[in-house]
Amino acid sequence: MTPLRRADLPTPALVLDLPALERNVAAMAAWARDKGVALRPHSKTHKSGEIARRQRAAGAVGICCAKLGEAEALAADGIDDILITSPVVPGQAVERLARLARTIPRLAVVVDHPDNVDRIAEAVGDGGIDVMVDIDPGAHRTGVASASAAVALAGRIAASGGLRYRGVQYYCGTLQHVTAAGDRRTALAERADYLRTILAALAAAGLPAETVTGGGTGSFAIDAELGVLNEFQVGSYIFMDREYRDCEVVGPTFEQALAIDTRVISVNTPGRVTIDAGLKAMATDAGAPVVLSGTDPASRYVFMGDEHGMLITPCGGSDPGLGDLVTLVPPHCDPTVNLYDRYVVVKGDAVVAFWPVTARGRSA
């Protein structure tokens, strides 16, 4: 049987460079071992049981899921230690949470309101579930907004029969893509000082945080220097994307493992060509992709509708030809992955596997 080549794939295709992925997973695991911190990668990036298993095999203590539906899908695929990083609030969702807790060895969830604590405690009963206090780092998305609120909520969890208070979550999402490393470090240091006041208040109340979880690909190395977090929720490091390529790197360097293969479908205007990847092929919240290979890397991408994009060749450059393969770096990897059913896994030009996007669309 003739091996399938990357050049034979229908496009657009979500392509995963297996050796680069493996090196990224190994590099982050080695960093965590060296620092003596726990690694709990965030699966909202990849939504894949196969990738989560590889992260666990490399030493991760468990994984994170952004939503309950993701956790259900990955638990069904064999992942047995999960932290859900968004509050699970609606009544039917709390009942699903309780059922999920009975199917895997460890399930944890974050809360930021006493009513939510009571509802989860009632649903779980004596079954038990680990609960973290979600702390607002200043974005006002989720999380308690003061040390006194954190102490009160931790006390409520600890007093609930079926809930196990484990610590706090503190994720500075708005700081992950601050371009200059110095500016990022300054902002993270200020936020770490605030977190220290909350941790001190919890300890003084007899409710010390066993686990302080948070961080991301843009902040993990700085967070480790600051010494407050002891569990890291890094996600995008396994793939990388244009947003992170635009940032000044701190810590280990990670390779571009995720890409979108496209083809040139029209060449009738000199200096610009049309490819078959438009709004439906990638997330657009972070702007346009950049060229990874197949044409001049300085070519500028412009969205041209649902199915089409345009590449504008720089002055003096050569246009790619009709049917040529052009590979793009996704602007934002997480929501781009959610647009595809599968990863095309490659080694060089050889297609070696197709991995399902296990939790695609599981946003509820």
Rank of each mutant, 00 (worst) to 15 (best):
R23N: 12
R23M: 14
R23E: 14
N24I: 15
N24L: 14
V25R: 02
V25T: 03
V25N: 03
V25H: 02
V25A: 06
A26V: 12
A26C: 08
A27G: 13
A27T: 15
A27F: 10
M28C: 12
A29Q: 03
A29M: 08
A29S: 08
A30S: 14
A30W: 06
A32H: 12
R33P: 05
R33H: 13
D34Y: 09
D34K: 15
D34Q: 15
D34W: 09
D34A: 13
K35C: 15
G36L: 11
G36D: 12
G36Q: 11
A38C: 12
A38E: 14
A38G: 11
A38V: 14
L39I: 11
L39H: 08
R40T: 13
R40E: 07
P41Y: 08
P41M: 00
H42C: 11
S43H: 05
S43N: 06
K44G: 00
K44W: 08
T45G: 07
T45D: 06
T45Q: 04
T45P: 00
T45C: 12
K47Q: 10
K47C: 06
K47T: 00
S48I: 00
S48Y: 06
S48R: 02
G49R: 06
G49C: 10
G49D: 11
E50C: 03
E50A: 10
E50N: 01
I51R: 04
I51V: 05
I51N: 02
A52V: 09
R54H: 03
R54A: 04
R54N: 07
Q55N: 08
Q55R: 08
Q55D: 07
R56W: 11
R56M: 14
A57H: 03
A57D: 08
A57M: 07
A58F: 08
A58Y: 01
A58N: 03
G59L: 02
G59R: 04
A60D: 00
A60R: 06
A60N: 02
V61H: 03
G62K: 06
I63F: 05
I63V: 09
I63H: 05
I63Y: 05
I63M: 01
K67H: 13
K67N: 04
L68K: 00
L68N: 01
G69F: 01
G69T: 02
G69D: 05
E70V: 10
A71D: 01
A71M: 03
E72Q: 08
E72M: 10
E72D: 04
A73L: 09
L74F: 02
A75W: 10
A75H: 10
A75L: 11
A76Q: 12
A76P: 09
A76L: 13
D77M: 01
D77Q: 03
D77K: 05
G78S: 04
G78W: 05
G78V: 09
I79L: 10
D80I: 13
D80E: 15
D80M: 13
D81L: 05
I82H: 04
T85E: 07
T85H: 08
S86K: 06
S86T: 14
S86F: 11
S86A: 14
S86M: 15
P87Q: 12
P87F: 11
P87E: 13
P87N: 13
V88T: 10
V88D: 00
P90Y: 07
P90E: 03
P90M: 07
P90W: 11
G91Y: 10
G91H: 12
G91F: 14
Q92N: 08
Q92C: 03
Q92M: 05
A93T: 15
V94E: 10
V94S: 06
V94P: 05
E95N: 07
E95Y: 03
R96L: 11
